[in-house]
Every structure is written in C-alpha cells, then in structure tokens.
Computed example of a mutant assay.
Amino acid sequence: MSPLPETVPFFSQWETPDMTLDVLAEGAEIALRRDPLWQGSGAETLDEYAVWAANICGMACLKMILASRGEIVPTIELARRCTGYGGYVVTERSIKGLIYAPFVSFVQEVFGLRAEVMTNVATAEMPAILERSRFFIASVSSWIRWPEREPPSKGGHLVLVTAASAKGFRFHNPSGHTSATQANAVLAPAEFDRFFANRDISVEI
C-alpha cells in the first residue's frame, strides 16, 4: 500500500460543493436538481441524487477515507452498497441512517477497513484515539459550519476528523458552506465539544 498523502482529499456530500446555502434555503430535493455535476455521485437518476444527497454525509466521509489510499468510489454507489448491509433503512417516505454497526460490517467486509463504534467519548480522549486510528467519523451538529453560533443540539451530522491535539481538531465537513468550513476546518477542542455528540467511528486503513 502506498503511503497516505499528507492532505486527505476532500469531497462534499453534494457534487457541487458550493451548493450548501442553496440546500439550506430551499431543501435538498429542490436545490440539488440544479446541480450540474450530479451524475458524478453514482446516482442513476436526478431524482435518486436529490433524495439521497442530504443523507450521505457518512458516505462522503468514507469516500474521503478511501481516496486517501487511492480509491475513488461515488457517494451514492457507496450508499447503495451500505444499504445492503443495513446501514440505511429506506422507505417510500424516508431514509434513516447512517446506522453505525452495519456500517462497520460493510467497510470491514467490502474494503478491509478496521472500524469500531465508540460511544461516550470525551472530547479530551480524541487525540489518543487518533494515535491508534488513522481517522474518526464524528457525530456533530451540522451547525459546526457556523462555529460562532450556539447549536440547538449535538449530533445528527458526520464529519471526518483527520488530526486532533490539545490545541485543535482538524476535520473535513461534507456540508461546509465555504472553503474554510469544508476542507481542513480547525476548531479548538472546547469549541468542537459544543457540537460533538460524544459518538464516533474510529477507522484504520
């Protein structure tokens, strides 16, 4: 296996990364029908893309992990495959997920990634976790894109943490709305803690 790149590739959960504010204003199923790059998602139709894209922050994180070792797999292709393992529950009215335990089985069996669901994780423990694992996918509030604001709750969104120390956490946010809040965003531990739901999936490659 080739060495990991110093910079982990970034991918948004929408194919055109600067559409976040449109998605927030109009809803994904409306805004993303204007995404000119939608076919890069692996969706078979524009309808499939518009329905799925708001639910695949976890698949965007997985896509980044795989890209760090030279594999590029479209996000909705990943979502379809993960659904086969129970990582998503799809009905006519909703998509529920990401469900962590089936996701762990999926990435282990399909990609050979060593992953572990971790709960009740204190923010202060995260640097030590990253000493043992290459990445962790952290459950945070989507409001982490606005660190100056107080989030209404914690969790509900996933970001890929690539480095952590007592000075700061570096992460890729699949639904960041500016370049500064997308790739290699950095927050002090106390700031990250305001959004962190104390759950994550550690991943080794």
Rank of each mutant, 00 (worst) to 15 (best):
M1F: 02
M1S: 14
S2Y: 00
S2M: 05
L4D: 01
T7M: 03
S12R: 06
E15P: 04
L21K: 13
D22F: 04
A25H: 06
I30K: 14
R33W: 02
R34C: 08
L37C: 07
W38S: 13
G40V: 03
G40W: 01
S41E: 04
G42N: 09
A43G: 08
T45N: 10
L46D: 03
D47M: 09
E48W: 04
E48K: 07
A50T: 03
V51I: 06
W52G: 01
A53L: 01
G58T: 05
M59W: 00
M59A: 03
M59P: 00
C61K: 10
C61A: 14
L62C: 04
K63N: 02
K63S: 06
M64N: 06
M64G: 05
A67M: 09
S68L: 05
G70K: 10
I72Y: 04
V73Y: 02
V73N: 04
T75C: 08
E77A: 01
A79Q: 10
R80P: 01
C82N: 08
C82Q: 01
G84N: 08
G86P: 03
Y88N: 09
V89A: 13
V90Q: 04
V90S: 06
E92W: 05
I95L: 03
K96R: 11
Y100A: 15
F103R: 05
V104D: 03
S105Q: 14
F106E: 01
Q108K: 15
Q108N: 13
E109M: 13
F111M: 12
F111W: 07
L113W: 00
L113P: 01
A115N: 09
M118W: 04
M118S: 11
V121P: 03
V121N: 09
T123M: 15
A124P: 03
M126T: 11
M126K: 12
M126P: 00
P127T: 08
A128D: 08
A128P: 00
I129P: 02
I129E: 03
E131C: 13
S133H: 14
S133G: 09
S133A: 15
R134K: 13
F136R: 13
A138R: 05
S139V: 05
S141K: 08
S142L: 09
W146M: 15
W146D: 13
P147C: 11
E148H: 14
E148K: 15
E150Q: 15
E150P: 02
P151I: 07
P152R: 10
S153F: 05
G155A: 12
L160R: 09
V161Q: 03
A163Y: 06
A164D: 07
S165C: 05
S165W: 01
K167G: 14
F169R: 15
F169Q: 13
R170D: 00
F171E: 02
F171Q: 12
G176C: 04
G176E: 04
S179H: 12
A180Q: 14
T181E: 13
T181A: 14
Q182N: 12
Q182F: 02
N184H: 09
A188V: 07
A188L: 13
A188T: 10
A190K: 14
A190D: 11
F192G: 11
F192Y: 11
F195Q: 10
F196I: 08
N198D: 05
R199D: 06
D200E: 12
D200V: 15
V203P: 02
